[in-house]
Design a protein around this nucleic acid. Structure first.
Lengths: 151, 151
DNA sequence: CTGCTTGCAAAGTGTTTGCAGGCCC
DNA sequence: GGGCCTGCAAACACTTTGCAAGCAG
């Protein structure tokens, strides 16, 4: 795991490199996402970003998340039916790819989110690509089920 | 594939057996879902049910779908971020299980839904159950990706 | 008749958008 | 200072809920 500041800096560097502006809102979103291992929904991000950028508006958070998503710095995952959750996906050279890229399981009972290495989905991805020409993007969806604690 | 009427009758029988009332709205919903192989969202069901039960209201469709879902007659799947889709899951004795139970792929580009046999997910389900004690419910979520046509 | 179901309207989530002003570069 | 970003408010899409009237059993 790289030092937190490194991921924030790397993200800001990408913004600059792509000619996007480094604004208070975007910086706050990146720092909030960097500060936790959890998956935050837009509401939680608004709440935490308010401490770093007083007066931030929901709509601006959504727009910042969309921009960062377009740049590949943030990935969002749709939880079964409810709010989408977001997390940083900055590619640092020294970071193992597996640490960044993961798929999600969500418990339909307690709503807990469990990360799994995306490699677990590789055989499935290979099969649907071979059989159907369908290229899976496993990061974007949570698989529902019942977690060990809730059974 | 059993005759369409058989699935409708079987569903109505389950309703009666459980002491639930057989109403015009519920009957219309079952017939609409039985009449197509597609996955319909609530809006489409409202549209088609209007022909069978003039004046049906959205809210009643949602309530009927909830009731039928509780009885296990209808399964809903959350498509990445957008409206949930519904389909009949009546267990007829003469129906092969695989015909009923399937998982879903959705193209993030054209939003087409592709059914895959749930068995394709078995190895994955076995692995997360063994490693994490997580019991996958593959019917309830669509996996996102890019379909062959959109690449 | 009894009370579960419906229709209606309104509220509740989660997210997007048009516009005028503000800040980054 | 030019133009992208932001705040605000309103709209939007999907779903749920409170209430009085209606129909199933």
């Amino acid at each position: 795991m790289p030092s937190p500041a490194a991921r924030v800096q790397a993200a800001l560097d990408v913004l600059r490199a792509r000619g996007e502006r480094v604004t208070r809102v975007r910086q706050a979103v990146i720092e909030v996402l960097d500060s936790t291992a959890d998956h935050l929904d837009a509401d939680q991000i608004v709440g935490e970003a308010a401490a770093l950028a007083p007066g931030v508006h929901r709509a601006s958070i959504y727009r910042a998340l969309a921009t960062l998503g377009d740049l590949g710095l943030v990935t969002h995952t749709h939880m079964g039916g409810s709010a989408a959750v977001y997390h940083l996906t900055v590619d640092l050279p020294e970071t193992a790819v597996e640490a960044q890229s993961h798929a999600h399981l969500q418990c339909s009972s307690c709503h807990r989110v469990i990360d799994i290495p995306v490699a677990v989905l590789d055989p499935l991805a290979a099969r649907v690509e071979r059989d159907l020409g369908f290229r899976l993007e496993p990061q974007h969806t949570a698989l529902l089920g019942i977690c060990a604690d809730c059974r």
